[in-house]
Simulated scan of single mutants.
Amino acid sequence: MNQPLKKEQLQPQGKAGAGKRLTTSAMIASIAGEGQATRPAPFGHALAELARTRQDIVGMTADLAKYTDLHIFAKEHPERFYEMGMAEQLLMGAAAGMAREGMVPFATTYAVFASRRAYDFICMAIAEESLNVKIVCALPGLTTGYGPSHQATDDLAIMRAMPNLTVVDPCDALDIEQAVPAIAEHQGPVYMRLLRGAVPAVLDEYNYKFELGRAKMIRDGRDVLIISSGLMTMRALEAAKLLHKDSVDVGVLHVPTIKPLDVETIRREAAKSGRMVVVAENHSVVGGLGEAVAGELMRANIRPPAFRQIALPDAFLDAGALPTLHDRYRISAAVMAQDIKSWL
């Protein structure tokens, strides 16, 4: 079940896919658009580089080194790589043991397996003891077309409810590269969503720097404020460019740290008069960034002209090609732009 499906031919929806047949893997596919700049395996390369100067870094996985880009670390630092087999609970228990011995383990698997299958082991063996384990998980939200067994549409809701656990949802290759040393330096357990393989490079042009626990205003706008995390910041920036053609000025506030939330920045930006607030996330509408932001605004008595959510539905999602699914579930840039325009 952990291996990719054979390639399939599916017709993507939307203008970009008109008249084309898309060759894709339903299991693992790049989220990069046609012609978009990418960098290969930013997590694997960043961790391998960090480990050159930090002997306490170890890499661990549950039969998914290749599919979490940890194979790059394993090749360069084989004496500090541990393959635990298809046993996620064992992976988390062993990572806890490593942390107790003074190591900083990076434990990788798929997000569905960490959040669902290994939840109690993370909670009791790692989070309750505030151990220095970094859990890095691929296939977050709708980044695979393999269906509900591998689509982690509820992982943020699960993980942000766990005490002591820092939760990170990076946007692109640069975000991941900078987040790796930052979470390694942080004392305590971290859950980080992972974009793997050929990861788009988007934030380079915005003079962006990742800071754990801080939201960053990527671009300002007078009409709409999109508060986003993960790959949805990438989509928000694309949607902002599309809406600019219709004279709609869109600001994008990137929130790479879901917990602890940068409440001060979110409240300040959402309080600016005249802007509709839209929260965009690659996660279920239940329990993620949208509800976290809505709760903060309500507690602070901040009332924007309108508040909307762009998120995945509270449902088990279909299998298929990612471009088709992103259109269907309204998280593609083109559909986002359409929806925001209709709300104004």
Rank of each mutant, 00 (worst) to 15 (best):
L242K: 11
R299V: 05
A51K: 09
D175V: 13
T61Y: 05
Y329C: 03
I331D: 14
I266M: 10
L5H: 11
L50K: 08
L325N: 09
A184K: 00
H71A: 14
E264M: 08
A94R: 01
N132I: 04
E205A: 15
D169Q: 12
L231F: 10
R160E: 02
A138Y: 04
G188H: 05
E205T: 07
A32K: 06
L297E: 06
R100Y: 01
G197K: 11
H150K: 07
S149M: 03
P304R: 15
A306L: 14
R267S: 07
Q9L: 15
T265N: 02
K134R: 05
R267H: 05
S273E: 14
S130T: 11
P140M: 06
D339K: 11
I266R: 10
G145L: 08
S247V: 04
E34K: 14
C137P: 04
L203M: 13
D155P: 05
N132H: 09
A99W: 05
A239C: 12
Q9I: 15
P305E: 08
H150P: 00
A37W: 00
A29C: 01
V167W: 08
M103I: 02
K15P: 06
P189V: 12
M92L: 15
L47G: 07
G230H: 02
F316V: 09
V250P: 13
D63Y: 01
T233F: 02
S30Q: 14
G35Y: 01
D339A: 08
L91H: 07
G19T: 07
M234P: 00
S30P: 11
Q36L: 03
R268N: 11
I340E: 10
I176Q: 02
F121L: 11
L237A: 08
R80W: 14
E83F: 09
I31T: 15
K209G: 02
G17R: 15
I218D: 08
L174Y: 03
M27W: 09
T143A: 01
T265D: 00
V293T: 02
V335D: 07
T53G: 15
R54H: 14
Y208E: 00
Q187P: 00
L165V: 15
Q3I: 13
T23L: 15
M159G: 02
Y191E: 03
L91F: 07
G141S: 00
K245R: 15
R219T: 15
Q13D: 06
P323Q: 03
G320Q: 14
F106K: 04
R21S: 11
A87C: 13
L297F: 05
D204W: 06
Q55E: 11
A215E: 02
E76Q: 15
D172I: 12
Y67F: 07
F113K: 10
V58N: 03
G295P: 10
V224D: 04
A46Y: 09
Q338W: 00
L344S: 04
A87V: 05
D154S: 12
L194F: 06
A215Q: 05
D169R: 10
D56A: 10
G288W: 06
A333C: 11
K245W: 04
A46V: 03
L194Q: 04
L5A: 10
A161G: 05
E211I: 13
A48V: 03
F106H: 09
G197E: 13
M336V: 10
A201W: 00
R235P: 00
Y329W: 07
A337V: 01
I227C: 00
G288S: 06
D69Q: 07
S30R: 14
I266C: 08
A127P: 07
L253P: 01
G97F: 01
H77F: 13
K75F: 01
D175L: 11
